[in-house]
């Protein structure tokens, strides 16, 4: 009797899931060997060094075909005794958005359909800082700074208690030992729960296959950072992981014409960030949410 029940249940379940089965058919029908390999690719953190090398070689091959450039894909791990933090001097930001576009170039963002930008500069009326509801994102005057306004650039705050890491159902995003929250783009399933969970709108989604102009491609990339992504994966600022692990400033720090942006290692007592936290009045956005961001805003003296 029990076996009959199982077969009966099986029949019903098959009938019920016929539609589900139908949905997967097109997914599997166009399966080449390469796509099968992609499908079965492991989580980055579970790969052995040999597997990582193989994946890197495969990706380099693919990028060469797609973009015509020889890529150097690094999988460099966190440098020991580093804990990165960012500083932004609000009294100096003039809202020119050069950081936004330097980031776009350095990190191989999709330029249009969809247009992805990891940094967003908000314009706030003087007298109001914390309530971001009155911010303007699409200001486009002839010259900046405009009188009566201040500018607040926001990007991923690399929280110590990241809500996005907590809610990801597949561990596709995690915090590296040097404090950077990264995404394994090949593991992300595109559920966008992390985008709903982020209080700073730090994460953006590749709604379609990214459009990167070939001549503007940056070929020195990191696997977890700025390598060209694919459609329907989440991405975010990685503090230019390809640069900082080699000891270089992030692209936005170098692009800022007013020297607003600062970067450093919190574990190094001589670093710029320690100086700032010790001597300047720093604050962090939405501290009351308990996310412990590592992005410190400060004002002169």
């Amino acid at each position: 009797m029990q076996n009959k029940r199982y077969t009966r249940r099986e029949f019903l379940r098959n009938a019920s899931l016929a539609a589900l089965g139908g949905l997967t058919i097109p997914v599997f029908s166009s399966c080449t060997k390469e796509e099968a390999e992609d499908f079965l690719q492991k989580h980055f953190r579970e790969m052995t060094p040999e597997e990582k090398k193989r994946i890197i070689a495969k990706l380099e091959q693919r990028y060469l075909q797609k973009y015509g450039r020889k890529f150097q894909i690094s999988t460099q791990e966190a440098v020991p005794d580093t804990f990165w933090a960012y500083g932004l001097e609000l009294s100096r930001c003039i809202g020119c958005r050069r950081c936004v576009y330097a980031c776009v170039k350095e990190n191989n963002h999709s330029r249009h359909d969809p247009q992805l930008q990891w940094i967003r500069v908000l314009r706030l009326k003087r007298g109001n800082l914390i309530n971001l509801e009155n911010s303007e994102h699409y200001y486009d005057p002839d010259l900046v700074p405009e009188k009566g306004f201040i500018y607040l650039p926001v990007q991923c705050q690399q929280c110590q208690e990241p809500p996005c890491v907590k809610v990801c159902p597949v561990h596709a995003t995690w915090q590296e030992p040097d404090g950077i929250v990264v995404v394994d783009y090949n593991w992300c399933i595109g559920c966008r729960y992390c985008i709903a969970a982020c209080p700073y709108k730090g994460r953006v989604f590749n709604w379609a296959e990214p459009n990167i102009p070939k001549e503007e491609i940056n070929p020195s990339v990191h696997y977890l950072g700025n390598r060209p992504r694919m459609k329907c994966a989440v991405e975010k600022c990685t503090f230019c992981i390809q640069r900082v692990r080699q000891g270089r400033y992030p692209a936005c720090v170098e692009a800022c014409p007013t020297g607003t942006r600062k970067f450093g290692n919190l574990l190094d007592p001589n670093s710029e960030m320690r100086y700032i936290i010790d001597r300047k009045r720093v604050f962090r956005l939405k501290e009351d949410l308990g996310t412990e961001p590592k992005f410190y805003y400060f004002f002169e003296a």
């Binding site: 949905l23 997967t24 997914v27 499908f39 989580h43 579970e46 907590k166 809610v167 990801c168 159902p169 597949v170 561990h171 596709a172 593991w187 992300c188 399933i189 595109g190 559920c191 966008r192 729960y193 989604f205 590749n206 459609k231 329907c232 994966a233």
Partner: peptide
Amino acid sequence: VDLGRLDRFWHMLPLIGSMNFPQSLL
């Protein structure tokens, strides 16, 4: 249908994929 990468659904399976249990409510 809402998932961006339905082909990666197996990442959500416990033991086979890497399900973020118990932290993730999904």
